[in-house]
Structures are given as structure tokens and as C-alpha cells.
Design a binder for these strands. Structure first.
Lengths: 139, 139
DNA sequence: TGACAAGTTTAGAATTATTATTATATTAAA
DNA sequence: TTTAATATAATAATAATTCTAAACTTGTCA
């Protein structure tokens, strides 16, 4: 937890118990949570936790470059820790989101058509391997 | 207009005056409109036009592969005619969205980590050339 | 230690894009 | 023309997010 504290300070965010728990949840969770998923999980720990705090914190983290906001269709924002550049795959059937690796050259583009690039997002949609597996079982 | 009619039929969509005008607007407009922008524009022509019709039509067009839904941050869906695969750049300052060309190899990926790809989206965000220009003028 | 200022959290109201519902109108088929 | 199917319209409902204002923490300095 001290490490997380230090990490936040480095990013210019003063640590609070809420922020630390949110950060820890993001580190542990593998599922690209929505704000409401984060709230649901952490309010078991901090029963007074408000949704506004989640939204405030996530916006702050986003500004400070700690997370990126994925918008992979579906009208809700999902959050992802900025560990290394990667792309995402969302299954249209089960809704699960996977991290996928692509040619890193794309993330190196800093200027395109004269516009200055700050952030690059790539996502694929389709049918995931698990949903394919289920189809076969049903034959 | 007859061409548009034919085009819709080919895509399995029975044409109606609303659908045709929406399609024509998408062809003419250069600005990746939201559903509400489309409604605002076309209701000048068809004053009784309902928002529901826009949403229904856009969902239909999307299912039939006529348009894709861009979600470029900002919690609103924007629509884009599927003419050829391309990427998008959104300026964080002025909000404008540009079409940009990238290496077409990325759009050829049909399988990634065992998942079947149906659609690929790439978008950049940053500061556009126009907003850079404005800065210089103010020096 | 105590008091103040700045920053954080909370709860609930407000906003906004989108979907659901249901009645009416239009089109296509028989 | 009658009937069934499809499309549109108006309104209500939903749900994610932001706004607002009050209460709470924290760190700083006398």
C-alpha cells in the first residue's frame, strides 16, 4: 500500500484512502471495470463511499495519465491502468474485454496529417474464442 | 436519390423518405454527426421527424453495415459512413473529428489471440493543426 | 495545541443520450 | 379493397454522468 501511496504522489495526486483503494482495485482487477463496478466493489470496504467520488477520482486519474478511458461501444466508460500501450478486443456476444498486443509502431505515431497525437486507441470487436468454444459444445 | 434507394435495397433496408434523407445527409456531411445533429438538420425538411426515428434508423444502418458507430470519448455516439477503412483523430481542444489514413494492414487482421475480429477501430486524440495555428496567431 | 484554509468526500438533484412503449400512419401483399 | 406487416411519432422511462452545496479531513502555521 505504501508503494501505491508513493506512486500517486509521483503522479501529482495526494493519496486518500478512497484513491488508494481504487488504485489497488484497478491493479488487481483484470476486467476493465466501469465506474459503477468500481463503486460496487469498494463500497463493501467503505460503505459510505459515494459514486461521485469514483467519478471524480477516475477523472483525476485520467487527467494525470494514470488510467485511460476505454470506450469500446456500449455507452459506458471503462477504465484501464496505463501500464504499457496495448489494444483491446471486445466480444459482441459476452461483452468481455481482452487486452491484445499489436504492432507497437502504431503507438509511436506522434503526428498525423499535421495533427499532434497525444493518445492512441485501437480496439477490435467480434466474437471471442470462448464464445466460439460454446458453439461447438452445443453441436 | 434513386441511387440511394437502390443502395438501401442492396443492403436489405427498405427505403423510406426518412431513411433516404438520413442517408443523403450522411453522404453530404463531413462532420461525423451525432444522432441529435442529424435530427436537428433533417427536421428542417421533415418537421414531424422524431428523434426515435433517428435512433432506430441509425441502429438499423449500423446492423446492416451501412455506418459505423464512432465512440471517440465524450459519451455520445457519432456516425460515419462505411466507405473505406480509415482511422479518426479527435482534437481535445476544439472537438473536431478528422478522418486520417493509417497502414491498412491493421484493418486486415481477422483473428487476434484466437478471437475472431469483425470490426477494427483506431482513433487518435490530441491537438489539431488548426488549434496549433491559433496559438501562433496569439503570440 | 488549536484554528484556519485548502482539499476531499458525500448525498441528492439535475442533466443528457438513449431505449422502451404504445398508438398512429404508411406500405406491401392478397 | 382489405389485411397484415412495417415504419414513424410522441411521450415516458432508464441509466450514466455531472453539478451543487454541505460536511468532513488534512496539513500548516501561530
Amino acid at each position: 500500500m505504501d508503494k501505491l501511496c508513493e506512486f500517486l504522489r509521483e503522479k501529482g495526486v495526494s493519496p486518500s484512502i478512497q484513491r488508494l483503494k481504487i488504485l489497488r482495485y484497478l491493479k488487481d482487477s483484470e476486467n476493465h471495470p466501469t465506474a459503477l463496478m468500481i463503486h460496487h466493489e469498494i463500497s463493501r470496504d467503505i460503505p459510505t463511499l459515494s459514486k461521485t467520488t469514483i467519478y471524480n477520482t477516475m477523472n483525476l486519474f485520467s487527467e494525470k495519465g494514470i488510467v485511460s478511458e476505454l470506450c469500446v461501444g456500449e455507452g459506458e466508460v471503462r477504465y484501464d491502468l496505463n501500464l504499457y500501450p496495448h489494444a483491446h478486443f471486445r466480444c459482441a456476444e459476452c461483452g468481455k474485454i481482452y487486452d491484445v498486443k499489436i504492432d507497437p509502431e502504431l503507438f509511436k505515431i506522434k503526428k498525423i496529417n499535421g495533427n499532434q497525437v497525444v493518445h492512441t486507441a485501437v480496439y477490435f470487436t467480434g466474437k471471442c474464442r470462448e464464445c466460439f468454444g460454446k458453439d461447438k459444445e452445443n453441436l
